[in-house]
């Protein structure tokens, strides 16, 4: 009965890689054509194509560094593939505080390993609609990881025994088995419009 908790320490991995974190708001991100192009809906969402080399799941970059590399590569990646699917996630949050960090992956290797997300986004938890939409995705299989950064520090907080204390979720509302939800459980086929309602727990 007792010691699942230490087994579960792998859970610090559930956070979308911190390197994809982008701050929203003019105080942090200078207004730019890129920001406008990548912002959607109520101006609450910032999304982008990830291109930042990962140094590990816990890698933390400065926001400005993130923003500039993301912007550079976003330009480079523009209109390179057949674009077909629009994937949206509506997040149920318990507390309208902090931000929801979202990372979308397009392969098992990237989702489960050290790879980078295909797209990332964040939305204020207090926004009228906590929806994140990834538009013009190539058709295919995807999986999403999200966590609710309640205190806005960009990191998945853990308790003293290493278990997450901030809510998190995976696409399909999949739950793992002593670890993050597997690709097998979290993957979904994107084609046309896909909408999932996700409970952050």
């Amino acid at each position: 009965m007792g010691r699942e908790n230490s087994v579960l320490q792998v859970f610090t991995d559930v956070a979308p890689t911190a390197a994809t974190v982008v701050h929203e708001g003019e105080a942090v991100i200078p207004a730019s054509p890129m920001a406008k192009a990548n912002s959607r809906l109520q101006g609450q969402v910032i999304e982008g194509r990830s291109s930042v080399p990962m140094t590990g799941h816990h890698a933390m970059k400065t926001h400005s560094a993130l923003w500039s590399s993301a912007a550079l590569v976003a330009v480079a990646l523009a209109s390179t593939s057949a674009l077909a699917a629009d994937v949206a996630f509506d997040f149920d949050v318990a507390k309208p505080e902090g931000r929801i960090m979202v990372a979308l992956f397009d392969s098992e290797a990237n989702y489960g390993g050290e790879g980078q997300p295909a797209r990332y986004a964040m939305v204020e938890a207090a926004a009228p609609t906590t929806r994140v939409t990834f538009e013009n995705l190539p058709d295919g299989d995807y999986a999403m990881r999200a966590f609710h950064d309640l205190d806005g520090d960009g990191k998945m907080k853990t308790n003293p025994f290493g278990m997450p204390v901030e809510p998190y979720a995976f696409s399909n509302n999949a739950v793992g088995n002593m670890g993050p939800a597997s690709w097998e459980r979290a993957k979904f086929a994107a084609s046309g419009a896909v909408v999932q309602t996700i409970s952050l727990k």
Partner: peptide, 13 residues
Amino acid sequence: ARARIGSNDDANA
């Protein structure tokens, strides 16, 4: 393998 355990309380009896 069908277990769904996202945290220790998912196994809490």
